[in-house]
Design a protein around this nucleic acid. Structure first.
Length: 565
RNA sequence: CGGGGCGUAGCUCAGCCUGGUAGAGCUCCGGCUUCGGGAGCCGGAUGUCGCAGGUUCGAAUCCUGUCGCCCCGACCA
């Protein structure tokens, strides 16, 4: 491709609408443009990168035996009513009516549609297992779209669905997809980790997320280097590595703590470590019952764990007014002693001697509180987030933590959809049984954003070779070299995706643009070519410059391609 | 949906408080010089000041309403 015939509207300055690095760079590199909130155009360069990712996904899915299909974005309400999700899904599901006043929605996911396909035409265990997938546009009317294509409303997703005759079959399909995902993300050239995950609204019990490791990731992962355990921190059991040294119980004492509310403030005021303070939070269950949740000041409540504890009840934190009504004190002075509501204490408080609690009276705390003698919780459970210093729940080694961006999620669904939609087949034993299903998603457009979050520097994007929209850029800094540069361009193009920067621009502009759009290898006809016929090869990632003769060039790049990483 | 902020040229933003000819830099077009890290000089193009209403002799500026966008919280690939 010749740059002069292509369309790469690069921007010098960061657009004001962009906050995160991938969003800024995608806009600046002329890869995407916003059409509306959470809705983006992919320009030629961005679309090329997207297609590279799609093709890697497609190739691995195909070789795993999954079959590609294409399902409609627009879906009839009837299907969603069958599974109850027409009501359950919430406002993320964009609903509308057609001219005949029939209800439709834009598909945020395709369990209903794919289950419908299968129940119509798959009748026998002999047709199983079956894995269907598509790479298609999804629409979720996110409450708050942000970070460009990282969390868009309209986005590209690869979604796959497996159908098996029994649970063993599902295990096999799940394992197959797990391995396929490992291959896909490796082939994309990404550093990633598969972690145990929370199943959320999709349902089912086992699930893994695939996380691209990046400082800017929204998720925190806990992992163990020794045994390989890894989970989303939402799920990680908190196993304290701290041994509470024996300390005899001191007498409970009420202290005046005017205006000090946060655990940090209380700690400073009393001259104690934050860990000695406890926080008590009030939650409202099903809009009817209040419960108190008590954790150490240096710990954080894990709402996913609470969700499990409250088994399906909706819950939220009480607001300040409600707290005052329930407790009789302001937030910041709440404590578990003498509360009229249920108290759930975190496990870390067991055996923890002489800590501080709110007195349920404004401007007062108690010091030297002890679980058991000061108050008796209705329940002691693991309700906090695992943190630095905690131990691996599998092998007891210290856990490590890192941030990541969720790009893939696989679930064992079981019969949730097949049962509610009466999707059954005739098994060996002559009985009608519901399909055992799994579902497997990859946020294809999000992979592009995550790639950039993981691979960039102050000059721009650094694309991994495998998904770079162009792998090689050829540029010449003098018209005299044009002819030779063209020859090299044509030769390299037979094997790789090459862009020839044939613009009548100054060298600085070309260098800046090439660095910005992240082409891994720059082939430069410049000073060295003039002096001694050596072509300069600049490696975007490392900034290394090598000088090779035209004859060696192809081998050099070939070697680079094989050695990269 | 709650809280905060912003809508002025293609982009980044000034002007608004204190009403009176709509601006700068970059981009874009033409010319000359320049040519290894977003060049210099000369000339030029570009705006319903988000939209609607109101106040006023006069509104980008003040008032009301409305729409859009961004950031913080709950969601997820």
């Amino acid at each position: 491709m010749r740059w002069s015939k292509f369309f790469i509207p690069t921007l010098r300055e960061d657009p004001s609408e962009a906050e995160v690095i991938s969003h800024k760079l995608l806009l600046r590199a002329g890869m995407i443009r916003k059409l509306a909130s959470g809705i983006y155009n992919f320009l030629p360069l961005g679309f090329r990168a997207l297609k590279k990712i799609e093709n890697i996904v497609r190739q691995e899915m195909d070789s795993a035996g999954a079959l590609e299909i294409l399902m409609p974005l627009v879906q009839p309400a009837e299907l969603w009513q069958e599974t109850g999700r027409w009501n359950d899904y919430g406002k993320e599901l964009l609903r509308f009516k057609d001219r005949k006043d029939h209800d439709f929605c834009l598909g945020p996911t395709h369990e209903e549609v794919v289950t419908d396909i299968v129940r119509r035409d798959v009748k026998s265990y002999k047709d199983l297992p079956l894995i269907l997938y598509q790479i298609a546009v999804k629409f979720r009317d996110e409450i708050r779209p942000r970070f460009g294509i990282m969390r868009a409303r309209e986005f590209i997703m690869k979604d796959a669905y497996s159908f098996d005759a029994d649970w063993d079959g599902l295990d096999k399909s799940y394992q197959l997809m797990y391995e396929t995902y490992q291959k896909i993300f490796s082939n994309c050239g990404l550093k990633f980790k598969a972690v145990e995950a929370h199943t959320g609204a999709i349902g089912g019990d086992v699930s893994h997320e695939f996380m691209v490791l990046a400082e800017t990731g929204e998720d925190v992962l806990a992992f163990c280097e020794k045994c390989g355990y890894a989970s989303n921190i939402e799920l990680t059991p908190a196993v304290s590595g701290e041994k509470y040294s024996f300390e005899s119980e001191k007498p409970l004492e009420k202290v005046y703590t005017p205006g000090v509310r946060t655990a940090q403030e209380v700690a400073e005021f009393l001259g104690l470590p934050v860990s000695k303070i406890t926080k008590t939070l009030i939650y409202i269950l099903n809009e009817e019952e209040a419960v108190a949740v008590c954790v150490r000041g240096d710990h954080e409540v894990n709402e996913v764990k609470l969700e499990k504890l409250f088994s399906g009840k909706s819950f939220r934190m009480a607001n300040e007014e409600e707290v005052r009504k329930i407790v009789g004190a302001s937030p910041g002075f709440i404590g578990p002693k003498n509360l009229k509501i249920k108290v759930i204490a975190d496990k870390a408080l067991e055996g923890y001697p002489n800590f501080v609690i709110g007195a349920n009276e404004d401007d007062y705390h108690y010091i030297n509180a002890n679980l058991g003698s000061t108050f008796k919780p209705d329940l002691v459970a693991d309700i906090r987030k695992a943190t630095e210093g905690d131990l691996c729940p599998k092998c007891g080694e210290p856990l490590q933590f890192t941030r990541g961006i969720e790009v893939g999620h696989i679930f064992k669904l079981g019969t949730k959809y097949s049962e509610s939609m009466k999707a059954t087949f005739l098994d060996k034993d002559g009985k009608m049984k519901p399909f055992i299903m799994g579902c497997y998603g990859i946020g294809v457009s999000r992979v592009l954003a995550a790639t950039i979050e993981q691979n960039h520097d102050e000059n721009g994007i650094i694309f991994p070779w495998q998904i770079a929209p162009f792998q090689i850029a050829v540029l010449y800094l003098k018209e005299d070299f044009k002819e030779n540069a063209e020859k090299v361009y044509k030769r390299l193009s037979q094997r790789w995706d090459v862009i020839l920067d044939d613009r009548a621009e100054r060298p600085g502009v070309k260098f800046k643009d090439l660095d910005l759009i992240g082409i891994p290898v720059q082939v430069i006809f410049g000073k060295n070519y003039e002096k001694n016929r050596k072509i300069e090869v600049k490696i975007r990632k490392t900034g290394e410059r090598k000088y090779v003769s035209p004859e060696e060039l192809e081998n050099f790049i070939n070697r680079f391609e094989n050695e990269k990483d």
